[in-house]
């Protein structure tokens, strides 16, 4: 038996190296370098159009990149095909618009990927699904269809759906931006508890209170570049760049 000389826990779970991305002539990401360690909660902030969502979507190749490398769990992201699907299965994603499957109940939304992708039997998947629905606080909604749920409930089902694959890392792409104000907290509470449980997370959000509370690191992006990164305490009280100062003054004044 041999021991690996490098313990896995010190390796970055997600690693972006010199990533560039354009939509046609419009370059949206410039030379992005970013490592996320296991257990780390990284919050990505910045003005709209700064490339936060695109960066997030590059990590599981929902967006292709023009140059650079994306590694997940030490593996270079493959092009299309089965290998990509296998890696995606380990990367949970939560979308702004929930994207629940409209023809499935909440429980079916959660169990479909474990059953069809992981080959879990239906009974085990259903038990897991109910456990996760309980965890996000809505076990009584198991048999409701997405159209019968509020936005906050839908997003909590979407989080449970991603968790059902037992992901190594979770990506949140503006998870509360489509929610009515009174529903934002129920989603943020679930995310905070996930962070406390040690889930590795990358979160694109405008919720600065959440960033302050739950993040290990805040990354500020502007015009496709990472401009500044720091601990939340440091970033919010003492931003270094003018652009970050300007952004925070606009966001925090009310």
């Amino acid at each position: 038996m041999e021991f690996s000389s490098q313990p896995k826990s010190t390796e970055a779970l997600v690693s972006l190296k010199n990533v560039n991305k354009s939509f046609g002539d419009n370059q949206v990401l410039y030379d992005i370098n970013l490592d996320i360690s296991p257990g780390e909660v990284v919050v990505l902030v910045g003005p709209s159009g700064s490339g936060k969502s695109t960066l997030c979507r590059c990590i599981n190749r929902l967006e292709t990149i023009n140059s650079g490398e994306v590694h997940v769990n030490g593996e270079l992201l493959p092009l299309e095909g089965k290998d990509l699907s296998r890696i995606r299965a380990d990367v949970g994603m939560v979308f702004q618009s929930f994207n629940l499957f409209g023809h499935m109940t909440a429980l079916e939304n959660i169990t479909v990927a474990p059953i069809k992708v992981r080959g879990t039997d239906k009974k085990t998947a259903n038990e897991l699904g109910m456990k996760l629905l309980t965890r996000v606080g809505i076990p009584e909604k198991a048999n409701q269809y997405p159209a019968e749920l509020s936005g906050g409930q839908q997003q909590r089902v979407a989080i449970a759906r991603a968790l059902a694959m037992n992901p190594k890392v979770m990506l949140f792409d503006e998870p509360t931006s489509a929610l009515d104000p009174e529903m934002i907290n129920e989603v943020l509470d679930v995310m905070t508890s996930l962070a406390q449980d040690g889930m590795t997370m990358l979160i694109v959000t405008h919720e600065m209170g959440f960033a302050r509370r739950a993040a290990n690191r805040v990354i500020f992006m502007d015009e496709g570049r990472i401009v500044e990164q720091a601990s939340p305490a440091e970033f919010f009280s003492n931003p270094k760049t003018d652009r970050a100062k300007d952004f925070l003054s606009k966001i925090l004044q009310h």
Binding site: L62, R88, F95, F98, N99, F101, A113, V117
Partner: peptide, 28 residues
Amino acid sequence: TVPKGQIEAARALGMTFGKMFKNVLLPQ
């Protein structure tokens, strides 16, 4: 007519094109 986001969600969950087609796109 099936929202693109649902297709992305299926792919993000690790479904191959075939599985996504059979379980998400076709039934809807």
